[in-house]
Design a protein around this nucleic acid. Structure first.
Length: 288
DNA sequence: TTCCAGGCCCATG
DNA sequence: CATGGGCATGGA
C-alpha cells in the first residue's frame, strides 16, 4: 500500500477527471479520493477539490510536484487558448462541455506505443490493452486501494517480445506494428528525443517511418507528447463532426481538404480545439 | 448478432 | 493525388 505526502495548489481551469478520460491517455485508475497512475517510472496519486466553478485545489505527491505540474500542463494558458478558437455554435458547445481539459505532456514512447495500438479500437479497449501491457511487461510501482500501478514497458522490453506474446494482449494485427516499431527504435533507426528539434512537418515525416504510424497516429503523438498544439489528428469522430457541422450540404471534401480546413479554421491551437470537439462528440453519443 | 472502433498499408486509377 | 480492400478483436 503506497502512502502519499501531499502538497496542493489552487489551479484555474483544470478538470482532472476529464483531462484523464478524454481519450489522450488511457491508464489512470479511479480510487476513492482521486486517481492513481504512473508518470514514467513514478507512481502518482491525484486528488481534486472544486473550490469555485473554475478553480480546483489539486493535491499531488510533494516530492513529485514538478513532474506532476509538467505532466498536467498547468502552465498552459487555457483562457488565452480558448480565445483563439472560432465561435461557431459547435465549437462553443464543445468549449462548454470541455472546460478544464488540458492537453498533457506524455512520455514519448508511451504515447507513441499507445496510439500504435489504438488504430480501429474503441477507447475502452485501448485502455484494456495499455493496462495489460503494463502489468505483463512494465515495472511494478506499487498498489493503492487495490489498484496495481505499473510503468509502461520500455522500448527494449517490447522489442524483445515475439508477435505471439504481444497478440496475447488482444492486439490482433497491431502486434506486429508495435513490435516492429519498438525494434526500429531499439536499433536506433529513429530517435524519439531528437524529434523534439524538428519542425512539425519533418517531425511528422520521421514518426511516419515507424511501423504502424501514419498521419493520424503521428499527429496524436505530436500533440500529446511533443507539445505541438496545432497538430490535428483526424479520426472517425473528428471526421464525422467536421462533415456534419462544417461541410453540411457541401460535396464530400478529400482528406487533404479536411486537414487544411481543420488546421486553418481552428487556429494556432487547432490541436486543442480538435480535442475538445472529440470529447464533446463522444459525450453527446453517450448521453443518447 | 451485428455494428463499429482515436488507421495503416498496399495496390490501382 | 485519391480511392478501395484487408486486416483482428471485443465492447456496446
Amino acid at each position: 500500500m503506497l502512502t502519499w505526502n501531499l502538497t496542493s495548489q489552487v489551479v484555474t481551469d483544470l478538470d482532472v477527471e476529464k483531462t484523464l478520460n478524454c481519450g489522450q491517455v488511457f491508464h489512470w485508475q479511479k480510487v476513492t479520493q482521486g486517481w492513481v497512475g504512473a508518470i514514467d517510472q513514478k507512481a502518482i496519486f491525484l486528488k481534486a477539490q472544486l473550490k469555485t466553478p473554475n478553480k480546483t485545489e489539486l493535491f499531488y505527491p510533494r516530492e513529485k510536484a514538478m513532474i506532476v505540474e509538467r505532466y498536467l500542463a498547468l502552465d498552459h494558458p487555457l483562457s488565452k487558448i480558448r480565445s483563439t478558437f472560432p465561435t461557431d455554435p459547435t465549437m462553443c458547445a464543445a468549449i462548454e462541455a470541455c472546460a478544464g481539459i488540458r492537453i498533457i505532456r506524455q512520455p514519448l514512447w508511451e504515447c507513441l506505443a499507445t496510439f500504435i495500438t489504438s488504430s480501429m479500437k474503441q477507447v475502452a479497449h485501448i485502455r484494456q490493452i495499455s493496462l495489460y501491457l503494463r502489468a505483463h511487461f512494465g515495472s511494478y510501482l506499487g498498489e493503492f486501494e487495490g489498484a496495481q500501478i505499473y510503468s509502461y514497458p520500455s522500448i527494449h522490453k517490447i522489442a524483445q517480445q515475439t508477435e505471439a506474446t504481444l497478440r496475447a494482449a488482444g492486439l490482433g494485427w497491431r502486434a506486429k506494428n508495435l513490435l516492429q516499431a519498438a525494434q526500429q527504435l531499439d536499433q536506433g533507426k529513429v530517435n524519439l528525443e531528437s524529434i523534439h528539434g524538428l519542425e512539425d512537418d519533418e517531425a511528422r515525416e520521421k514518426l511516419c517511418q515507424l511501423s504502424g504510424v501514419g498521419p493520424k497516429v503521428a499527429n496524436c503523438v505530436l500533440l500529446f507528447a511533443y507539445e505541438r498544439l496545432s497538430a490535428v489528428p483526424i479520426d472517425v469522430w473528428i471526421k464525422r463532426i467536421l462533415l456534419q457541422n462544417y461541410f453540411h450540404g457541401q460535396p464530400q471534401p478529400t482528406e487533404r481538404q479536411l486537414k487544411a480546413f481543420a488546421r486553418e479554421y481552428f487556429g494556432a491551437y487547432s490541436g486543442y480545439a480538435q480535442q475538445y470537439l472529440f470529447h464533446y462528440a463522444r459525450t453527446l453519443k453517450s448521453k443518447r
